[in-house]
Design a protein around this nucleic acid. Structure first.
Length: 854
RNA sequence: GCGAGCGUGAUGAAAUUGGUAAACAUGCUGGACUUAAAAUCCAGUGACCGAAAGGUCUUGCGGGUUCAAGUCCCGCCGCUCGCACCA
């Protein structure tokens, strides 16, 4: 018997045992309820980071817990393996993206296995493998047939550094989400997923996602951005053309004083061809930055086209038509009507160009004769004024009335506008899923016949010039048209990597199937019961996946709307930051304490300690999990990850915290070592008599099982960990007075070991063996507390006088209120506080508190 | 600007959802063991007054509701995140 727990030996031993036993391999089993636990799959960057450790530890706790509860648990792992970094590595280091990626996967797979995760590795997938992406190509073709994928020429966000198109979701503050380069506008022919076909459904179904964080649902709701309003037509005076406008406030139509076009509006473009001044104005608008600063400070500017438009409800009424810098082509129709009295931007614009400001909504407490708008537009509720047939109507009624009238006159109609736009998914990159389409001059864009899939990536590519290596490849794109057999060209774009991650969770159900999804497997396992990952995917990945589910349904692959029934978003891992005297960032292992306890760098120079921030390479405040696992073991890393900080909150990684976790696990091991010999044999029946101390210990054990279980169910892992500390303190303080007491100790120790099993599985297996069991703990059921033992017979009741605690009483549980009151008033400390005064009122809260009011 | 969240000891945090504020841990202080250190074990640790018994104060700030407020309501202050010229 050694004096210390040898985690290295133990961890590899148990990992091998589980592997031999096939403990985590699962298949469809209709005799048991299923549970699908999934953590967001990693990008194979080369090494796992602390965020992975936290993510996969939490998922593993859920998976192992559900397994012990008798569920058939699917817990798979794979690789989000396409993407730009592989191409960057190819350019920088001259390695092929494929070999770079697969080498990274090999390293990271070993690292993850070292964590002791309960993963069914037989289901591993990599999105860059033809065995995966060939099915994605099939899906793409099926989507095309259902009109869920289409091609159009569009203004796109062009990242000049990465030389590729970005989706709107990937443009952050006018910059590429990956490169950080300022995004340009370009017009290109692109493939789009028709996500807007489901705008309404994606929005409405959010409500049913009860096990999703409110925050994420709200973000998606805003992103989809539904607004009700009207489309209104303004005929151009003297021409046979009309301007189409979207408004959410058709009730303010009689307050209109101008119309304005976006600089990118087709009509604006035509005007610019004839008018150099208009062209100059548009050029100026396009130059303006899209950064948040530029937008916030931008002045409203317009260019008077000289054209007039006629009011849709009064053809004698003409309004000036401007081109205005604040009108977006991407939203609505790219044209607006301006009602300055009730829209702040319109008001700013009207003041600058001296246009009329007519109030048409009267606030509830204002006088029609005196109400006027000065510098602030009125956007609140009220009744219509100066609005002819609408006068006197409330805003909502006025909206309905005006929409009816517009419809009668063929001058407009009620409509619903979404902010969400179709998902542009073409990328001018090599390391992605090739778009399975052939372009033929005669036949157009022709899908590759299914029997010709996969369209594989050529291996002989070069990365010596910017742009798309597939496009530069000498032969790859030259093919025959599948329809007319004439010369044709492959589409040389690849799919956005978010396509890969939009259905991988479904592929895990039948990872080796010859078809994209095996219907039976998908029906059994889906939806994912618990999905866990970072909040950064709140919109992109989670919205695309929800769309994909519906698209798959439409193509007949499965019959489900929502991919993720439960979602948990974890917090980030933070660490202190360090800078040397020159202000350069230093990593935690470049700094140390000197003799006086001050931080110094390797040369003994002073180091400035900054606040704790999200671990990042740029600030060099990362800790390598591999090093931690090497030094302290996987269980310590896992235990610390779950301790202290609530899982949805950011947590601080500290050396002392890890050491504390390590010491505790050692302590648990010693606790079992020291007790094991004196315990009755495993499985011995409960004795009749035991000491009060032993009874109290049993009670503590059963209560802990009860509370711990609830904590795990509710993702309160930090609280669960604290309960283990409490129970182990009780155990350490307990010394059995005889064999009956030792039985209680065994029961409690076994509870403890079973409870920690999902969190520190290797140590738990080891201790289970030490307690004399030959079975694998991973096959043991979750413990069940005795309901009789989780209720106290004696309760502690606080007694207050006027709300201030004056005494604490130990009373039998459920004592009648009158007796509790009598006991409280009889207490000396209470009598002293009352100081002879009579109680005016006594409030008794059962088993909890008494408040004496004087 | 709009929306959401948060604010509790030296620190990470608990608080049965309106009922004993600070569980558990880290750190720190003292002690035991040791030639010494580490490890381990024991005790203490919100602030103030007091020798003690005990008392007073305390959950960002100010009000309110209530027998009772960290928790509910109103108004400020601060921090974090998301969206942002969305008609």
């Amino acid at each position: 018997m050694s004096a210390r727990y040898n985690f290295k030996e133990s961890e590899s031993k148990w990992q091998a045992r589980w592997d031999e036993a096939g403990s985590f391999k699962v298949s469809e089993d209709h005799s048991r309820p299923k549970y699908y636990v999934l953590e967001m799959f990693p990008y194979p960057s080369g090494r796992i980071h602390m965020g992975h450790v936290r993510n996969y530890t939490m998922g593993d706790v859920v998976a192992r817990y559900k397994n012990a509860r008798g569920f058939n648990v699917l817990h798979p792992m794979g690789w989000d393996a396409f993407g730009l970094p592989a191409e960057n590595a190819a350019m920088e280091k001259g390695v092929h993206p494929a070999s770079w990626t697969f080498e990274n996967i090999a390293v990271m797979r070993d690292q993850l296995k070292g964590m002791g995760l309960s993963i069914d590795w037989s289901r591993e997938i990599a999105t860059c493998h033809p065995g995966y992406y060939r099915h994605q190509q099939e899906l793409f073709i099926k989507f095309m047939a259902q009109d869920l994928v289409y091609r159009k020429e569009a203004w796109v966000n062009w990242d000049p550094v990465d030389q590729t198109v970005l989706a709107n979701e990937q443009v952050i503050d006018g910059r590429g989400w990956r490169s950080g380069a300022e995004v340009e506008k370009r017009k290109l022919s692109q493939w789009f997923f028709r996500i807007t076909a489901y705008s309404d459904e994606l929005l409405a179904a959010l409500e049913g996602l009860e096990r999703w964080p409110e925050k994420v649902r709200l973000m998606q709701q805003k992103w989809i951005g539904r607004s009700e309003g009207a489309r209104v037509y303004f005929p151009i005076a003297g021409q046979d053309e009309k301007i189409e406008v979207f408004t959410t406030r058709p009730d303010t139509l009689f307050g209109a004083s101008f119309c304005a076009l976006s600089p990118n509006h087709p009509l604006a473009g035509r005007l610019a061809e004839a008018d150099p001044a208009a062209a100059a104005f548009i050029a100026e608008c396009n130059k303006m930055g899209t950064s948040e600063e530029a937008i916030a400070t931008a002045e409203k500017k317009g260019f008077d086209t000289g054209l007039k438009v006629r009011h849709p409800l009064d053809d004698q009424w003409e309004l000036p038509l401007y081109i205005a810098n604040f009108v977006l082509m991407e939203y609505g129709t790219g044209a607006i009507f301006g009602c300055p009295a009730h829209d702040q931007r319109d008001l700013d614009f009207a003041r600058k160009y001296d246009l009329p400001v007519t109030p048409v909504v009267l606030p509830p407490d204002a006088e029609a004769t005196s109400f006027a708008v000065a510098d602030e537009a009125y956007v609140g509720p009220g009744t219509a004024i100066n609005s002819r047939f609408l006068d006197g109507l409330e805003v909502d009624a006025a909206k309905r009335a005006v929409i009816d009238r517009l419809a009668e006159l063929n001058a407009g109609e009620g409509t619903i506008q979404f902010r969400l736009r179709d998902w542009g998914a073409s990328r001018q990159r090599y390391w992605g899923c090739p778009i399975p389409v052939i372009h033929c001059e005669k036949c157009g864009a022709v899908p590759v016949p299914l029997e010709d899939l996969p369209v594989t990536l050529p291996e002989d590519v070069t990365f010596d010039k910017p742009g798309n290596p597939l496009f530069h490849h000498p032969t790859w794109k030259k093919v025959c048209c599948p329809i007319c057999q004439g010369p044709a060209e492959r589409d040389t774009d690849t799919m956005d990597t978010f396509v890969d991650s939009s259905w991988y969770f479904a592929r895990y159900c039948s990872p080796r199937a010859e078809i994209p999804l095996d219907r039976e497997a998908a029906d059994y396992w889906l939806p994912v019961d618990q999905y866990i990952g970072g909040i950064e995917h709140a919109v992109l990945h989670l919205l695309y996946s929800r769309f994909f589910m519906r698209a798959l349904r439409k193509c007949g692959y499965l019959d489900l709307d929502e991919p993720f029934a439960g979602l948990f978003t974890q917090g980030m891992i933070c660490h202190e930051t360090y800078r040397n005297v020159e202000g350069r960032w230093l990593s935690p292992n470049e700094v140390s304490h000197d003799a006086d306890g001050a931080w110094v760098d390797g040369d003994g120079r002073a180091v400035t300690v900054g606040r704790s921030e999200k671990m990042s390479k740029s600030k060099k405040n990362t800790i390598d999990p591999a090093q931690i696992i090497q030094t302290y073991g996987a269980d310590t890393a896992r235990w610390f990850m779950l301790s202290d900080s609530p899982p949805d909150r950011d947590m601080d990684w500290t050396e002392s915290g890890v050491e504390g976790a390590y010491r505790f696990l050692q302590r648990l091991w010693r606790l079992v070592q020291e007790s094991a010999e004196d315990l009755p044999a495993a499985g011995t029946a409960a004795p009749g008599q035991m000491s009060d101390g032993a009874k109290a210990l049993r009670q503590a054990g059963h209560k802990t099982v009860h509370a711990f279980t609830k904590d795990v169910e509710n993702f309160r892992f930090n609280r669960a960990v604290a309960r283990i500390y409490e129970l182990s303190n009780s155990l350490a303080a307990f010394s059995p007075a005889g064999p009956e007491d030792a039985w209680a100790k065994r029961e409690t120790l076994e509870f403890l070991v079973k409870l920690i099993a999902p969190m520190t599985p290797h140590l738990a297996e080891e201790l289970w063996g030490q307690l004399g069991h030959g079975s694998l703990l991973v096959d043991q059921p979750w413990p069940t507390p005795d309901p009789a033992l989780i209720i106290d017979e004696v309760v502690t009741v606080a007694v207050q006088v006027n709300g201030k605690k004056r005494a604490v009483l130990e009373l039998p549980r459920d004592l009648p209120d009158a007796e509790v009151e009598a006991a409280a008033l009889a207490e000396a400390a209470i009598q002293r506080s009352l100081d002879g005064k009579a109680a005016r009122k006594v409030i008794v809260v059962k088993n909890r508190i008494v408040n004496v009011v004087v």
